[in-house]
Amino acid sequence: MKVNIVGPLPPPVGGISVHIKRVKKQLISKGVECNIYNEANVENEAENVYPIHSYKLFVLKIPFLKADVFHFHSISLKMRILLGVYKLLGKKIILTVHGESLADQINNSNRLVKFFLLKGLRYIDQVICVNEKNTKQLIDLGFNAAKLKTLPAFIKPFEDKQDIEAIPNFVWDFINNSEFVITANGCIRFYKDEDLYGVDLLVELVNRLLKNSIKVSLIFVVLDRDSQNEKERMYYKQIKEKIKDNKLESNFLFYETKDTEFYPILSRSHLFIRPTKSDGYGVSIAEAIHYNIPSIASDVCTRPEQTILFKSGDLNDLYNTTASVIHNYEKYKRKLETYESTDYFQELYDTYKSISGK
């Protein structure tokens, strides 16, 4: 079997790119040929990784590529519209929808664009949604339930000594000198004019915890800093100034990464928080739970089992939830020690085999 995957591959590191990286490793371990057509435009021909460069040229190239299954993770509207055309040309097509991107495209497009988008996607072999909410949205739009699948994107990490060694010393120093380490990750991004990853909430949270004599340190792993636009760069600067004004420099660390994995830091922490204003699932939450790290997240979507939820955007609820976890920490740790997190690769692999007929 041969699988062509279209989407980003680290660097930069992100939920989708890490998922694709792990899928590729698992496929190779099973003797499956796997090519990555990389939206991040990093090339490694020896590893069958090819940069897309230009969408305009790449969409014309796809009909001439050979594979038993084409798996798209792209959020490009134009590419999603064309998936039905590729199916007509004999390709076997899977699209994974990570988060709200497809729902936003459907809701915000004009009638003509919406018509062609929905028509094409209804025709392809499989649409995978990472949460049940998005699957239901598509069923309500008239999609065939047999062609829809809810399949979270979590695949257990391949632990590698090099991943640990790649983390800078200042990060380990911060962790080693901290009494209680909270981790979080994400981009500096806006969604509907709000801080998508809730960095503002985390700064306020740390400030309030310290004022109430709850000693914590928080490391926020910043993804894809180079793609920040002017508004995001200005906001990032303002957040840093706020940290300085509140004298939080020794308790709040931004670590800007391009290609280091998150799990070495996550596994050394005490608590993970994901206060996103919109989300698909939260692969990092599943990863934290895999390492028996209690995890708090906003209630914006279906979360992994064992996630501790708070009301999205509500600082008081986030503070009370976090303080409760810290004060009852051993209880939360014991609960996770008896829980086995689910790795979803095998179900994805079975989907490839079913659709390819191999």
Rank of each mutant, 00 (worst) to 15 (best):
L121A: 07
L121I: 11
L121W: 07
L121E: 06
R122H: 05
R122P: 01
R122Y: 02
Y123F: 14
Y123M: 13
Y123T: 10
Y123C: 07
Y123R: 12
I124E: 00
I124W: 00
D125Q: 02
Q126H: 08
V127H: 02
V127C: 03
I128C: 08
I128E: 04
C129P: 03
C129D: 03
C129M: 02
V130T: 06
N131H: 04
E132K: 09
K133R: 12
T135P: 02
T135A: 05
T135F: 04
K136P: 00
L138C: 00
L138W: 05
I139S: 01
I139H: 00
D140F: 03
L141Q: 09
G142V: 05
G142L: 07
F143V: 02
F143G: 01
A146H: 13
K147N: 10
K147G: 07
K147L: 00
L148P: 03
T150A: 03
L151T: 02
L151C: 04
P152Q: 06
F154Y: 15
I155N: 00
I155Q: 04
I155W: 04
K156R: 13
P157A: 09
F158Q: 12
F158T: 13
E159I: 15
E159L: 15
E159Q: 12
E159M: 14
D160H: 11
D160Y: 11
K161A: 14
K161Y: 12
D163W: 12
D163K: 12
D163M: 13
I164T: 13
I164F: 14
I164R: 10
I164L: 13
I167H: 02
I167E: 07
I167V: 15
P168L: 06
P168G: 05
N169C: 10
N169M: 10
F170A: 08
F170S: 11
V171C: 12
V171Q: 11
V171S: 12
V171D: 11
W172I: 09
W172N: 00
D173M: 00
D173R: 11
F174D: 08
N176G: 07
N177K: 14
N177F: 10
S178N: 04
S178G: 10
E179A: 13
F180C: 09
F180A: 08
F180Q: 05
V181A: 03
V181Q: 02
I182E: 10
A184C: 06
A184Q: 00
A184M: 04
A184D: 06
N185A: 15
N185M: 14
N185S: 15
C187R: 15
C187A: 14
C187K: 15
I188Q: 04
I188E: 03
I188L: 11
R189V: 08
R189D: 06
R189E: 07
R189W: 02
F190P: 05
F190Y: 12
D195P: 03
D195H: 02
L196M: 13
L196R: 15
Y197C: 09
Y197E: 08
V199L: 03
D200P: 08
L201W: 01
L201M: 13
L201E: 11
V203W: 07
V203G: 05
E204R: 12
E204D: 15
L205D: 01
V206M: 02
V206L: 09
R208T: 15
L209C: 03
L209R: 05
L209Q: 00
L209P: 06
L210W: 09
K211S: 14
